[in-house]
Design a protein around this nucleic acid. Structure first.
Lengths: 225, 225
DNA sequence: GTTTGCATAATTGTATCCAATCTACAATAT
DNA sequence: ATATTGTAGATTGGATACAATTATGCAAAC
């Protein structure tokens, strides 16, 4: 019998392949905006970066393409997908519909631990001075609030949807709204959760997303893409 | 300048690779239930079926796994994902939330051509005697009604969600409700669309999905999985 | 100056081969 | 008889090599 052995989380999940590692690295780089729209993703270059052959790179690419983060053309290569203002608007519209529903389902089930964690993320977000970290903390805050809904499929859709527009959300945080505005809205959402006001939290979440969308679209139009 | 050139659809879409072909074939086989839950997908076997090496097979698998249709384990192989009753229920709950929203957006924009096409699918569905075709016609009917919403992202989410539960929907059509019930509901939805009753079409769609979900869950519980 | 043609380089798609590891079953020890 | 160990086959993960296609640079013609 196993007796004194300690298992780490990494032992429980299936062992990561090279393709997994590369997928996560590329996805994060795209999400964070480190590789900009239209940025080329050369199989050979990436393979050399990870000291592997092109095979696992291609497998990672298949997943990224399936998720809509990159588009590739035969014998031409893959580039980071670029979204039109219309596409971005539609995705934010989707978020503004689905995320309020998820938080509304989560509020009645939210534990004190979750509320404390969310407050922690919110405070950390407010205190963070490095703009490059704002995106991560913003994302973490929202994710925690949806967690207790206990709806894995809803969460996966929300996650994949957010992946597609994360780099634009970060644009808003960096250059447009600044962070103070987001902090106030986050605290309002969290307060509604603490008061178990599910409808209120949902409505605030909807407005939070819609405002971000409008702000972003205004910004993009001034940049006249 | 381009003057007089006729482009075919196949010229517009990028040329299909082996991986594309294999992905589509496997996805359809899974969706249609031709490969049942837990059915093994051996790379070598599939490669031989398509007369190719395992490389394109693996790339197709990555996409299928990203979409949640198969699960694979290192050195053990991939199998068709099996969904628990809880997972199926959640996915139908998602459908019952999102699809009414899409049809409600579509109704005001629906063209006569679309309405005629939908009626065609509905009639073809009613007249079809081969149960194996019911699933396709059912799916086609619903897709047409969502098309004019002009929301590609919403449609892609609806499509991917339906892919996950399509084999269970077909179970309901084949063995449980029969087709007559579905035809009546389809005609009711379509009639609401023709009368430009967006809210009505949405509500009927919601009930259509919820009823299918309840029927399916009852059936699955009797089969005590 | 612009365009066309061609040779070369760059890039992706796929086949083949090898390594790692899991499964099943037989052999052995307790 | 049961538990453990060892080994062979099966299966996947990945590297290397080659084929097919496209991009690029440059020279020649208009």
């Amino acid at each position: 019998m196993v007796n004194g052995l300690k298992l780490r989380a990494s032992d429980l999940s299936k062992q990561a392949s090279s393709a997994d590692v590369i997928y996560n690295a590329l996805r994060d780089a795209i999400i964070r905006g480190e590789i900009g729209e239209g940025g080329a993703l050369r199989q050979d270059t990436i393979a050399q970066m990870f000291r592997v052959s092109r095979i696992p790179v291609r497998e990672a690419m298949q997943r990224l393409e399936a998720q809509g983060l990159v588009v590739s053309e035969r014998h031409k290569g893959a580039v980071v997908a670029s979204l039109s203002v219309e596409q971005i608007t539609e995705i934010f519209q989707f978020r503004a519909l689905i995320e309020p529903i998820v938080i509304e389902m989560a509020v009645p089930l939210m534990t004190e631990k979750t509320l404390a964690e969310a407050q922690g993320h919110c405070d950390a977000f407010a205190a963070e001075t490095d703009p490059l970290r704002w995106g991560d903390l913003n994302r973490a805050f929202h994710r925690v609030l949806y967690r207790d809904a206990g709806k894995p499929y809803f969460l996966s859709v929300v996650d994949k949807t957010n992946d597609l527009v994360e780099r634009y959300v970060r644009l808003v945080l960096y250059f447009v709204q600044g962070m103070r505005h987001a902090v106030a809205e986050h605290q309002a959402i969290l307060d509604a959760c603490k008061e178990r006001d599910a409808k209120g939290a949902a409505e605030l979440t909807r407005r939070h997303i819609e405002l971000a969308s409008e702000t972003l679209v205004d910004y993009l139009r001034t940049q006249k893409r």
